[in-house]
């Protein structure tokens, strides 16, 4: 078990890498555990997650019809 506690400052410092799933399993689990019990850090994590969702949504754009036609024409000739 990962009994070693993690402090708020450490959670905040590693938060982005945690959300990017770049941390090892032990550290991730300790952060998850901390987030379950610390409202301040949980609030911040939720904010960063939501911001990330907004960024992800901002990247969605409809392909112009001209591009779709161009791709169809190209593929037709492959």
């Amino acid at each position: 078990m990962n009994a070693q506690r993690i402090r708020c400052e450490e959670v905040i410092e590693q938060l982005f890498e945690f959300l990017d799933q770049e941390l090892d399993e032990d550290l991730s689990q300790r952060i998850e555990h901390h987030l379950k019990h610390c409202r301040d850090c949980f609030t911040r994590a939720e904010f960063e997650k939501r911001l990330r969702e907004r960024i992800d949504q901002a990247a969605e754009t409809r392909a112009p019809e001209a591009l779709r036609r161009r791709l169809r024409r190209m593929i037709e000739e492959f």
């Binding site: 901002a58 990247a59 969605e60 392909a63 112009p64 591009l67 779709r68 161009r70």
Partner: peptide, 26 residues
């Protein structure tokens, strides 16, 4: 055809330019 929107959207965020984005996708 199914992925065209995501391909274009990603290319547009990478290039910032609609024409470049179309060229990258093509």
């Amino acid at each position: 055809d199914r992925l065209a929107d995501r391909l274009y959207g990603t290319a547009l965020r990478l290039t910032r330019d609609p024409e470049d984005a179309e060229d990258v996708v093509a």
